[in-house]
């Protein structure tokens, strides 16, 4: 288009003006697009909610909304970490392993039916320490040895699962015996489930880190071009390790909350979370290549997936059709949400 305009205009002065007009047009559209994407995701979400509430009047009751919020809390917490890692242009596949290792460590050190030590708050510290170690290990191997994050974290997934299985041993299932904590995640405080409050806190902190700290800014810059970041003398190495560490600690926190929610320690407590979290980040519009995206968008992605799952059960879709229907609705929702991004020069991979 630009070429055509240029060739038609001919004379120099007119060309400059035409280019300026075009530039401002592009800029305006870019700004619109920045808004349009989350907006269309919101619209998709609203349509889903609308349809589901027509299909079953219980969908929009307070108790179901609280139920959806409880179910989305753990994926939300883990997804904040996953968003940061994906903004780097990397990926963290270790979430389920880290959740298992942390959850098992935590319950065995808390008041549980197998007996043993009850370390109270120290159980949290030690369990999250395990997660931190796994995260730092992933980060260091990834940065220092330049092994692709995909492989490192895939390995770390199994290391975490292995630790969890060893801790589990061959004894009885460890059940949580702490009456104060039992059912804590789905208990309601100020109208919202406790686990959702934790998720809100994590989301808030995540946004703060991304927008207002050096880690956040360097993370986005690395996602755009690591070469420039490094030649500008910015601390790419420590930031990358820090982001993997943060992501692992958040997975660990998710693992502990999942254990509290189930009331039982299990190495596979995180099963299925990875395949909510990564799609949610991408559906939210964070680029897998890094550099573009954000945490609030991921939140929309998590809600879309959780509501889809809940809504299909409530509207009575037969279980054998559920996965096919989930997939079809999901693809339709993404096509709609990403409609505004069909830029001519945009490359989808």
């Amino acid at each position: 288009m630009v070429h055509k305009v240029l060739s038609e205009q001919g004379a120099g002065g007119i060309t400059t003006t035409a280019i300026r007009i075009r530039e401002s047009g592009i800029e305006r559209r870019a700004r619109f697009r920045g808004l349009a994407e989350p907006l269309s995701l919101l619209v998709a979400l609203a349509v889903l909610i609308g349809v589901f509430s027509l299909l079953n009047e219980r969908f929009l009751t307070a108790s179901n909304i609280q139920n959806v919020l409880t179910q989305s809390a753990i994926p939300l917490i883990v997804a904040v970490g996953a968003t940061l890692v994906i903004l780097l242009g990397s990926i963290d596949l270790s979430v389920e392993g880290v959740m298992g290792a942390t959850g098992m460590t935590w319950i065995l050190l808390s008041n549980n039916s197998r007996g043993g030590a009850d370390l109270g708050p120290w159980a949290w510290v030690i369990a999250l320490g395990v997660a931190l170690l796994l995260g730092v290990a992933s980060g260091l191997i990834f940065t220092a040895l330049k092994v692709p994050s995909f492989i490192v974290t895939l390995g770390m997934w199994y290391v975490g699962l292995g630790i969890a299985t060893m801790l589990y041993g061959t004894d009885l299932l460890p059940r949580l015996e702490d009456e104060g904590l039992k059912g804590w995640t789905s208990r309601i405080s100020l109208g919202l489930p406790n686990s959702f409050w934790v998720a809100l806190l994590v989301i808030g902190l995540g946004i703060l880190v991304l927008r207002n700290t050096r880690i956040g800014r360097v993370t986005l810059a690395i996602g755009n071009s690591e070469t420039i970041v490094r030649s500008a003398g910015l601390p790419a190495f420590p930031v990358k390790v820090a982001v993997f560490a943060i992501a692992a600690v958040l997975s660990g926190l998710g693992g502990i909350l999942a254990t509290v929610q189930l009331d039982i320690g299990s190495p596979t407590v995180g099963s299925g979370v990875l395949f909510i979290v990564i799609p949610a980040v991408v559906i939210g519009g964070t680029h897998l290549g890094g550099g573009k995206g954000g945490i609030l968008r991921t939140v929309l992605g998590v809600f879309l997936l959780t509501i889809l799952n809940n809504g299909l059960i409530l509207s009575g879709v037969e279980s054998s059709y559920q996965s096919a229907v989930t997939g079809a609705i999901l693809v339709a929702a993404i096509v709609f949400a990403a409609w505004s991004q069909r830029d001519r020069l945009r490359v989808a991979k």
Binding site: N56, R58, T61, S63, N64, N67, T70, Q71, S186, A258, Q261, L262, I264, S266, T268, V269, S271, G272, N309, N310, I313, L314
Partner: peptide, 18 residues
């Protein structure tokens, strides 16, 4: 056979049928 999934599905069915 997944306790976690049964827990979630039970929550959804409680929301549905109370």
């Amino acid at each position: 056979w997944d306790p976690q999934l049964a827990n979630q599905n039970a929550k959804d069915l409680i929301a549905k049928y109370g």
